[in-house]
Nucleic acid binder design. Structure first.
Length: 312
RNA sequence: CGCGGGGUAGAGCAGCGGUAGCUUGUCGGGCUCAUAACCCGGAGGUCGUGUGGUUCAAAUCCCACCCCCGCAA
């Protein structure tokens, strides 16, 4: 089939590359978000754009595809369009362009975890499993009928970043399989059960702020879920402190003073939570680089009794 | 040219014009029922790069370049 691929970040670029490798379909063009300042102010093309250019595939970038894209896309006359973390909502006018419509690769078991950050939220909420869904795009957010799903277990200490890595190949395989089903007319479109739908917002920087009043388990899940972006953090005095990784030292036991460092030494920094105790293992001060807690305290001691807190 | 911090011993940091220091690790010795224990001693550094500038003297001031990181996206 003649395909137009829409996607932006690494997750999309990986799936894009597998689609190209499969060689079964002709990719007419890649649509991606405009080049934006990233990486400390330098304007950088998206991973999908870089990959497309490497393969001499035309790249289209729209500030707002629903307003500017219809004409150009129509001229390409695609059989189907594929989206993966593209980053813009598509209007009905766009959806109507390809003969087979648009399918989307979504990293959750729909109808659960609709929204832009399904992987991270699944980890943050302590899920033990998630997956990938290939769905037909309809007007609305991740609400169209599902063509197929693949289930994946979440490791007990797995970070969102690690789960991303594992979900990418699963998503790529599922997409290729779905395209086959569609091309041969064997695809089944199962409507989502709206009553079981859950939706979560995109992650914001502030979603990484730790509330020490929560349980050690909840904070542990948060730290994993926002790693590597936006990163969990707290404040030591008025200086932000990033928490890259931690372990649950004690699951139970209520503390009188959540956020207080009860012990600090070469085996880590132990912090009292609302319930249970968390051991910080990889931390990073502003302007410094990430390091093991044991190394950190050699240069900047964190005495017992220090209390981490929210923004001042 | 978006704003800002930083590159000094294996690791983490201090020093910011005048003999290169601290914590930790490491090696050797001692002590102890025991401890992330304690005591004594040693090794380990072209102070990011520059046949750069200023100076009697530069890790320290100035310039250029490289690299790392925080904020903002």
């Amino acid at each position: 089939m003649k395909i137009v691929f829409l996607g932006t970040p690494d997750f999309a670029a990986y799936i894009f590359s597998k689609l190209l490798e499969s060689g079964r379909h002709k990719v007419l063009a890649a649509v991606t978000q405009p080049d934006r300042p990233r990486d400390r102010g330098r304007v950088t093309p998206s991973p999908v754009k870089e990959l497309a250019q490497k393969h001499n595939i035309p790249v289209l970038q729209y500030e707002r595809i629903s307003r500017e894209g219809a004409e150009g896309l129509r001229q390409l006359a695609p059989d189907i369009m594929v989206t993966a973390a593209y980053g813009q909502i598509l209007s009905q006018e766009i959806i109507d362009i390809p003969t087979h419509g648009i399918i989307n690769v979504h990293a959750s078991l729909l109808p659960a975890y609709r929204g832009a950050a399904p992987i991270q939220w699944a980890v943050i909420r302590g899920e033990t499993g998630t997956g990938v869904s290939i769905m037909q795009t309809e007007a609305g957010l991740d609400c169209g009928p599902v063509i197929l799903t693949e289930r994946v277990a979440i490791g007990e200490t797995e970070t969102a970043g690690q789960l991303f890595e594992r979900l990418m190949p699963v998503g790529a395989d599922a997409l290729i399989k779905a395209l086959d089903l569609i091309e041969t007319g064997r695809a089944e479109y199962k409507p989502q059960d709206e009553s079981r739908a859950t939706h979560f917002p995109p992650l914001r920087k502030t979603d990484g702020e730790i509330n020490w009043g929560k349980t050690a388990r909840e904070i542990f899940d948060l730290i994993r879920g926002v790693n590597p972006w936006p990163g969990a953090y707290t404040y030591m005095g008025d200086a932000p402190l990033k928490i890259w990784s931690a372990e649950i030292a004690e699951e139970d036991g209520a503390g009188k003073n959540p956020g207080e460092v009860i012990r600090s030494g070469k085996d880590g920094v132990f912090v009292q939570c609302g319930k249970g105790i968390l051991k910080l293992s990889d931390i990073q001060a502003s302007g410094a680089k990430r390091m093991a807690a044991a190394d950190f305290i050699k240069g900047r001691p964190i005495p017992s009794g220090t209390v981490f807190c929210g923004q001042l």
